[in-house]
Amino acid sequence: MIAALAGLLLRAVVVLFGTALLTFALLWNSPGDPAQAIAMARFDALLTDDVIDQVRVEAGLDRTFWVAFLDWLGPLLRLDFGHSSVTGRPVWPDLSNAMGYTFPLALAALVIGIGVSLPLAYLATRRPGGWLDRASVAVATLGTAIPAYWLGLLLILIFAVHLAWLPAMGARTPAHGILPAVTLGLGVAASLTRIIRSGILEARARPFLPALRRRGVGSAAIGRDHVAPHAAVPVLTVLGLELAFLLEGLVLVEAIFGRPGLGSFLVTAIMARDFPHVQAVVVLTALIFVTVNLVIDVAYRILDPRIGGRDA
């Protein structure tokens, strides 16, 4: 167990390092002169070659690749993300400010997603093949095909434009968060419903359940001790995937609803070619992703000791 955990941890570190290196290489080799882009963003029209060269030195763009990479990686290990190359301000305060908008939204979306999908999947599987089952599968299938940005626009159209119940743009009040959270949450619910449903059905179809029933074990106890743990394994898998969906959806949803947050932070940074900002978001995302997946891998081993990890 200890060796397996150490292996998982090592793998997570390798993956994180790989991501950091890939990101840096990508940014370093991206076409166009970043110094010029930054100079434009900062000084607008007053562009001379001297100014651009000065920006190049200031932003450290005149170093060789490996020097620049190590100069960036060293402080990063102490969670120092450096300074914005556009505004010159430290990255961390702006980044944590953005996270303050994003995390509550992600959490709310997850709660909505699970809150909708769990009861729906449970009701659907009470009579597999019944109308409720077929209807929920159909809705969930449709739901996975609807892109977040379109669902968001539809919700704005209905609840903000026509009914005028909720605000659409910005993040001034908690009410501003309702439509974005519902947009994301419904997307989560759609895929989660399908997977929880088939998880429950598979767990129920396990051959030892009739034997337990014959031995007089109550159905509540069967559900708790035998069905739930087996249904939980695929749910764990999908939570890892949901996280990806959530992070992808956040970028789009924040763009639709004009919310400040990690997604908007990233899009703005890309447009302005603010490398330290882009790097910070990418590394943070990878860190969240790898950590959550590590936790999921560990949970796997605890739930089902026979499994040597998801892809073993």
């Binding site: 991501t19 990508l26 076409p31 992070l247 970028v251 990233l266 882009v278 995302t285």
Partner: peptide, 24 residues
Amino acid sequence: MRTTDSFLAFPELVAAIVIAGLTG
């Protein structure tokens, strides 16, 4: 496979946004 993991250790669409945005 570790390279594949590295690529998977990131939401694909977010990566695509970064790459597409930065490659012009």
